[in-house]
């Protein structure tokens, strides 16, 4: 044995951190696979939501709906594209927040955070599975609606929509990290998150055109990241703009994605440091 003392900083280099991500992916896939009923119920809920909106759509005069690329749309076509983005936001946001909450409830948060793994790796690892699954789920949902409800969606717009959603992910992830910080700090901060999401949804074009909002809300809705993502999705899928819809959309989303991530990382780091100092990391 050497008599020379040594100290080594953990976590180790970036590559070693990246190697841990597949382990998170495998864990979450196995967890999902062990709760298959929840998986199917999620899909049943989505389809039920579309059934409701297709019935409501019979009451809506299509002339009141905006046209995309000169093509008029039915309410079902209008709303499913909104639902696709909205459910993407809800699921992705929920998973980012619940990743921390579930660890807290299972009593594994402290154990996970005392491993030599950076908090950012833990956050990224916790949503690895969803980063792959949620965009895929959104596209499958659009295909299913197109087949089951006869919604006329441009197949060539699916890949451009996935690109828009990929840029939308950091916006959602940043919001999720702020919410996760709130959960760590206030234990049940997820309720506040639900309220914020609701406000964002109402102030967007998800379920209705923003033209029907009051004047002051219309200008705010135009800056709402959900509205921007939904607008791009509709231009690609309903207006047939395909790749032409991508750049104008991501040009607006990119600065929002950057700021959202910065604020989220800062908030989560602050919350983790505070809880560690107080020794209340595992309290829930």
């Amino acid at each position: 044995m050497t008599a020379r003392p040594d100290v080594v900083r953990h976590p180790a280099p970036l590559l070693e951190e990246l190697w841990k991500l597949p382990a998170f992916f495998r864990r979450d896939f196995l967890v999902m696979w062990s709760y298959r009923l929840a998986f199917f119920v999620d899909w049943a809920n989505l389809i039920a939501q579309v059934v409701i909106f297709s019935l409501v759509g019979r009451l809506v005069d299509p002339r009141l709906l905006p046209s995309f690329g000169g093509t008029s749309t039915s309410y079902v076509e209008f709303v499913v594209t909104g639902i696709a983005v909205a459910s993407f936001l809800q699921i992705a946001l929920g998973r980012v927040v619940n990743a921390i909450r579930e660890e807290q409830l299972m009593g594994t948060l402290e154990s996970l955070l005392v491993t030599p793994t950076s908090p950012l790796t833990i956050q990224l690892g916790s949503v690895m599975y969803d980063l792959a699954y949620v965009p895929l789920r959104t596209v499958l949902f659009l295909v299913a609606v197109s087949v089951l409800f006869g919604a006329r969606l441009e197949a060539g717009g699916l890949i451009p929509v996935m690109v828009i959603l990929l840029v939308f992910i950091p916006v959602v992830w940043g919001l999720g990290m702020v919410a996760a910080a709130a959960v760590l700090t206030f234990r049940r901060g997820a309720g506040a998150l639900g309220f914020v999401v609701m406000v964002l949804m109402i102030g967007s074009n998800t379920y209705f055109p923003i033209d029907i909002l009051p004047e002051w809300a219309r200008s705010m809705a135009a800056l709402n990241p959900i509205s921007i993502a939904v607008e791009g999705t509709r231009a690609a899928l309903l207006g047939g703009e395909g790749w032409g819809a991508v750049w104008p959309t991501i040009r607006l989303l990119l600065p929002m994605a950057g700021s959202s991530l910065l604020i989220g990382v800062g908030a989560l780091r602050f919350a983790l440091r505070r809880e560690r100092r107080r020794g209340t990391l595992g309290l829930y």
């Binding site: 044995m1 003392p5 040594d6 953990h10 976590p11 440091r273 100092r277």
Partner: peptide, 18 residues
Amino acid sequence: GVLLNLESGSYYSINPIG
């Protein structure tokens, strides 16, 4: 052993002599 700095959240490993 392992040392944890609660302020920075950083971890360090030390050998038996450490």
